[in-house]
């Protein structure tokens, strides 16, 4: 019994740390995006100097913001869902089994995304692909989002583990 609650505590604390780090990164990236767009316009009108490749930098930041933010919502399973038949389906199987099928599906899909992104990043690295305007290596961005996608899968699994531990806990706590 104490082993289980210890496990839960470990899962919970590592999950919290991971989510906090991802939150900080995603928030920071969004802040930079805002400041950069703002400065780009101001710079253009006041100092006649747009940021060369500014749009390319903002595009890259967008990708980073999405994939760091994705880690957070994956950990919380905060996704858009159609909750039309959830109740009747839950009556057909135990909540735990239902939850596991849903979460495994999400983990599988996110794993697929992480896999293809890694392959894509590897290709842009080996072929030395460059961005169009700044001619900077494309893998800077593709590899970063691939790494975020992997972290996001891990945090997703941690989130699932935490949820399952919780479901079992509440099931154990209920009188039969």
């Amino acid at each position: 019994m104490s082993g289980a609650s210890e496990n839960r505590a470990i899962v919970r604390s590592s999950l919290t740390t991971a989510v906090t780090i991802l939150e900080n990164i995603s928030g920071f990236v969004i802040l930079i995006m805002m400041l950069l767009t703002f400065i780009d316009v101001i710079g253009r009108y006041l100092f006649h100097s747009p940021i060369f490749g500014g749009t390319e930098i903002i595009s890259a930041l967008l990708a980073l913001a999405i994939f760091s933010g994705l880690g957070v919502i994956n950990a919380r399973d905060d996704h858009i869902t159609v909750e039309l038949f959830e109740a009747p389906i839950k009556r057909l199987m135990t909540p735990l089994v239902y939850e596991i099928t849903i979460q495994l599906f999400s983990v599988f899909c996110m794993g697929l995304i992480a896999l293809v992104l890694f392959e894509h990043a590897w290709e842009s690295y080996t072929l030395n692909k460059l961005t169009v305007v700044l001619e900077m290596p494309l893998y800077y961005v593709t590899a970063s989002i691939a790494v975020f996608a992997v972290i996001s899968v891990v945090s997703q699994i941690a989130g699932v583990a935490f949820k399952i531990l919780n479901v079992r806990k509440s099931a154990a706590g209920q009188p039969r």
């Binding site: 399973d77 996704h79 858009i80 869902t81 159609v82 909750e83 038949f85 959830e86 389906i89 239902y98 099928t101 849903i102 599906f105 999400s106 599988f108 899909c109 996110m110 697929l112 995304i113």
Partner: peptide, 11 residues
């Protein structure tokens, strides 16, 4: 069934 819309569409 309740699978997350984004993931289901992608798959």
């Amino acid at each position: 069934y309740g699978f997350r819309v984004g993931f289901a569409t992608l798959l």
